[in-house]
């Protein structure tokens, strides 16, 4: 597996983490004692998750001639 393939897997995992973390922080915000920091982290994390997926698409287009092996 080439660095290109591993990078795609990694960015997918990082994006999943960003979405999971975003949902987690929004849940923390809704619980008693949740603060605006939790909300900010949650929203920012969801945005980062989307940005990582956009980057992944850009990366695949940019290196379309590189092998996955």
């Amino acid at each position: 597996m080439s660095l290109k393939a591993f990078h795609v897997i990694f960015i997918t995992a990082a994006s999943a983490l960003a979405f999971g973390f975003g949902v987690w922080m929004l849940r923390e915000y809704r619980l008693p004692g949740g603060g605006s920091g939790d909300l900010a982290f949650g929203v920012a994390s969801l945005i980062v998750g989307v940005a990582l997926l956009v980057y992944e698409g850009y990366f695949l287009r940019k290196l379309k001639n590189e092998s996955f092996l």
Binding site: L3, F6, H7, I9, F10, A13, A14, L17, F21, W24
Partner: peptide, 24 residues
């Protein structure tokens, strides 16, 4: 550089799993 990058991605991937289980 590609080989060192593969190692680096593995190290980063480990942290992707470590962060939620330890911090959250």
């Amino acid at each position: 550089v590609e080989v060192s990058g593969l190692f680096w991605h593995f190290v980063d991937l480990v942290w992707i799993f470590l962060f939620p289980i330890l911090y959250l």
